[in-house]
Structure formats: structure tokens, C-alpha cells
């Protein structure tokens, strides 16, 4: 599937036919997508699907075999330095300078960024990295603390665009929520976030749009809400007395009746379904929310890689 870039002038990231081969391995294939200004864009796929390859190509670590891409309106080959000046980047499994303290590492990276560190204090507070912790050497940090330093260094200069590779890896649930709150605030400020993940629940929680990639190819590029609206939901009903005949309700399928209980799957408009089943004999109704996981698994049906993705 190919999604044509829409509104190119507003696209913070726009790729066109981007292809990357490593010898005989095709890591990215003819990838065309756009990330709009002010949105949080999720890039989904299991390990090895090509997520990090795209990120590394956008930031100039890799050179595209074919195609082109622009970030913040700048060409990724010719203007890579300027792109990196205006971007924050969190690499997957970030490595830091072990001999430096957390504070010194952040100072060093901020100095090299050459844009100050206006957001550091706020970020340290949100991610619970007090000065006493920042004074310790990075080598003494747990994985979660390193990841927090990674998040802080990516955002401390208040970048226009943040590119995050598996940002919540290693964060405890409390810090994951702090991170999600940070994402929400960034959205309110009009900042653009591009992040790759294989944690579907966080993409669903945070992102406006998602792209699903498989073996280097774009499989889907949609609003999260649209993607979910097209998913089947599981519904369960309990009646006072025998379950009535519900055949013919649009979108209802896989109906199973067990005495006064009934389960089915529902595709489409919920309100129409609720109107159709409205009855004084209806005792209980459960409609499970649609999950991104199902959409994802649909694209990866029969692929072992789907097992690497968490819901």
C-alpha cells in the first residue's frame, strides 16, 4: 500500500519511494508517507520490520538506496546537520557516556545541540530525576534511569520534531504514564512526534495516526480512530429469559447463543446496534473496545513476527 503525501508544505516528514537495501536484504521498500505538523505519529512493526532503518535514514545515519525524504522541509542528504539541530532523537536502547554523571551527560549533549536546555528542569521533575540522582555516574544507573536520561536529552532543547525509537522501553508503568502526559503536552504545544513502537496499547493511547510496516513495506497509514472504527468488537449480551433472534442486524457476525447469553462480533456503528437490541428483557450488555492489536494482527496474519508485538 502507498499513501500519497498530503499537504506537502505542512508535512514535517515526507518520504517518497524511500528504499534501503543492505546487500541482498531489502530493509525498506518504496516507502511513501507523510507526518503532519503537530501530530503524534506511531510507526508500528515487529523487530526487523524496518522501523529503525527508516528513522536512521531520516537522521542521516543511513543513506537511501532509492527515493527521497524531507524532514522539516529539508532534504535528508543535503541538510542533515540542520535537521538534527531542530530535532530531538531518542535511539532504541540508548547508550550513554558511562564515565559522566547524568547531569554532565545532559550538559554535554545540550552544548553539542547548541540550542540550550530550556525544558530540562521540567522534564527532570516529570520523570523524577532529582539533582541527587543526576549527580550519580551514568554507569550506576538502572536501565529505566538511562531511558529517562534518553528522553530528557531528546526533549531538553524543545525540538520542533522528536523522533523516538521505542521510547518507553525500560520505563516502569508510573514513568510510562508520565511519558504519555509529556506526549499530550507536546501535542498541545504543536510539536510533532514520530515514534516507533511495538507496544500497541501505547500507540493506541498516544498517537493520532499510525503507519504499519511489514518487511520494509507500508501496509497501512491511517488515523487511529479510523483504524479502530473498522475493527470488529466483541459483544456479550444477557437476557431475561431466552435470547431473541438477532440475525439481520448490520455488522453482527459470529453469533453464539448459550441459554440466555449471547456473544458475537460487531463491525461498524455501535449506536445502530444498540438501537436494534433495545428491549426491556435485555439484562446486561458488554461491548469491548476495538483494539489496535487486532488491526495489527490482521496485517501480520500468519507471520511469526506478530508474536513479538505486545498489546
Amino acid at each position: 500500500m502507498q499513501a500519497e503525501p498530503t499537504g506537502a508544505p505542512q508535512a514535517v516528514i515526507a518520504t517518497k519511494g524511500l528504499t534501503k537495501h543492505y546487500d541482498t536484504v531489502k530493509a525498506l521498500l518504496d516507502l511513501t508517507l507523510d507526518v503532519r505538523s503537530g501530530e503524534i505519529f506511531g510507526f508500528l512493526g515487529p523487530n526487523g520490520a524496518g522501523k529503525s532503518t527508516l528513522i536512521r535514514t531520516l537522521l542521516g545515519f543511513l543513506h537511501a538506496t532509492e527515493g527521497s525524504a524531507r524532514v522539516l522541509g529539508l532534504d535528508i542528504e543535503a541538510d542533515s546537520v540542520e535537521i538534527r539541530r531542530r530535532t530531538g532523537y531518542l535511539p532504541g536502547g540508548i547508550a550513554l557516556y558511562d564515565s559522566l554523571s547524568g547531569a554532565d551527560a545532559l550538559d554535554y549533549l545540550a552544548d553539542l545541540q547548541d540550542r540550550g536546555a530550556a525544558m530540562r528542569e521540567e522534564l527532570c521533575e516529570r520523570l523524577q530525576m532529582p539533582p541527587s540522582v543526576l549527580r550519580r555516574k551514568v554507569r550506576d544507573y538502572s536501565r529505566g534511569m538511562r531511558q529517562k536520561i534518553g528522553v530528557i536529552q531528546a526533549f531538553q532543547h524543545d525540538p520542533e520534531l522528536a523522533i523516538l525509537d521505542e521510547p518507553t522501553e525500560g520505563l516502569d508503568p508510573l514513568m510510562q504514564h508520565a511519558f504519555y502526559a509529556l506526549m499530550d503536552d507536546q501535542r498541545k504545544k504543536g510539536r510533532t512526534i514520530f515514534f516507533s513502537s511495538h507496544v500497541l496499547s501505547e500507540v493506541e493511547r498516544v498517537c493520532d495516526r499510525v503507519a504499519i510496516i511489514r518487511s520494509g513495506q507500508l501496509m497501512a497509514l491511517q488515523n487511529v480512530d479510523d483504524l479502530l472504527a473498522r475493527r470488529k468488537r466483541k459483544v456479550e449480551l444477557r437476557w431475561r429469559g431466552a435470547a431473541p433472534e438477532l440475525a439481520g442486524i448490520p455488522g453482527l457476525a459470529d453469533v453464539r447463543v448459550d441459554g440466555n447469553k449471547m456473544s458475537a462480533t460487531l463491525l461498524g456503528d455501535v449506536s445502530e446496534f444498540v438501537r436494534a437490541i433495545a428491549s426491556p428483557s435485555l439484562e446486561d450488555l458488554t461491548i469491548e473496545p476495538a483494539r489496535l492489536e487486532e488491526a495489527f494482527l490482521e496485517y501480520y496474519a500468519g507471520d511469526d513476527a506478530s508474536e513479538e508485538v505486545r498489546g
Binding site: 537522521l59 546537520v81 538534527r84 530535532t87 540508548i94 549533549l109 553539542l112 545541540q113
Partner: peptide, 9 residues
């Protein structure tokens, strides 16, 4: 990778 994420050619 962290180093080259800065604006350094």
C-alpha cells in the same frame, strides 16, 4: 549514535 544525533557533520 547519540553524538551524531547532534548537529555535527
Amino acid at each position: 549514535e547519540v553524538l551524531l544525533a547532534r548537529p555535527i557533520s
